[in-house]
Computed example of a mutant assay.
Amino acid sequence: MSTPRFLNLPPGVAPHRIETPQGTFAALQALPVSGVVERWPALLVPGLTGSKEDFIAVLMTLAQSGRQVIAVDLRGQYETQGPDDPAAYTCPSLGADIDALAQVIGGGEPIHLVGHSFGGLVAREAVIDGRTRFASFTLMSSGPSAIEGRRARSARETMREVAELGLEHVWHHTLEPEALAAGVSEEIVAFLRKRLLANSPTALRCMTEEVLGMRDRTDELRQIDVPTLVLFGENDDGWSPETQSEMAARLGAESVVVPGAVHSPAVEAPETTAAALVRFWNAAEKHYLDTRSTAV
Score class of each variant (00 low, 15 high):
156 R>L: 14
158 T>N: 12
159 M>F: 09
161 E>H: 12
162 V>E: 02
162 V>Y: 01
163 A>N: 08
165 L>N: 13
166 G>A: 00
167 L>A: 07
169 H>V: 14
171 W>R: 02
171 W>P: 01
172 H>K: 13
173 H>L: 07
175 L>T: 11
176 E>S: 01
177 P>F: 00
179 A>H: 13
180 L>I: 14
181 A>C: 08
182 A>V: 10
182 A>K: 13
184 V>D: 04
184 V>H: 06
185 S>Q: 11
185 S>M: 10
187 E>A: 11
188 I>G: 05
188 I>A: 09
188 I>R: 06
190 A>T: 11
190 A>P: 05
190 A>C: 08
190 A>D: 11
191 F>T: 01
191 F>W: 08
191 F>S: 00
191 F>A: 00
192 L>M: 11
192 L>P: 01
193 R>G: 02
193 R>D: 02
194 K>C: 10
196 L>F: 05
196 L>Y: 03
197 L>C: 06
197 L>H: 04
197 L>Y: 06
198 A>M: 13
198 A>G: 14
200 S>K: 02
202 T>N: 06
202 T>P: 03
203 A>G: 07
204 L>V: 05
205 R>V: 15
207 M>D: 09
208 T>A: 14
210 E>P: 02
210 E>H: 07
210 E>F: 05
210 E>C: 06
211 V>I: 15
211 V>T: 07
211 V>E: 01
212 L>T: 01
213 G>H: 10
213 G>A: 09
213 G>L: 09
214 M>E: 13
215 R>W: 10
216 D>W: 06
217 R>D: 03
217 R>E: 06
219 D>L: 11
219 D>S: 13
219 D>M: 10
219 D>Y: 09
219 D>N: 08
219 D>W: 09
220 E>P: 04
221 L>E: 01
222 R>D: 10
223 Q>A: 14
224 I>N: 06
225 D>T: 12
226 V>P: 04
227 P>N: 08
227 P>Y: 07
228 T>V: 11
229 L>C: 03
230 V>H: 00
230 V>G: 01
231 L>N: 05
232 F>A: 07
232 F>R: 00
233 G>L: 01
233 G>P: 01
234 E>V: 14
234 E>W: 12
235 N>T: 12
237 D>K: 10
239 W>M: 00
239 W>N: 00
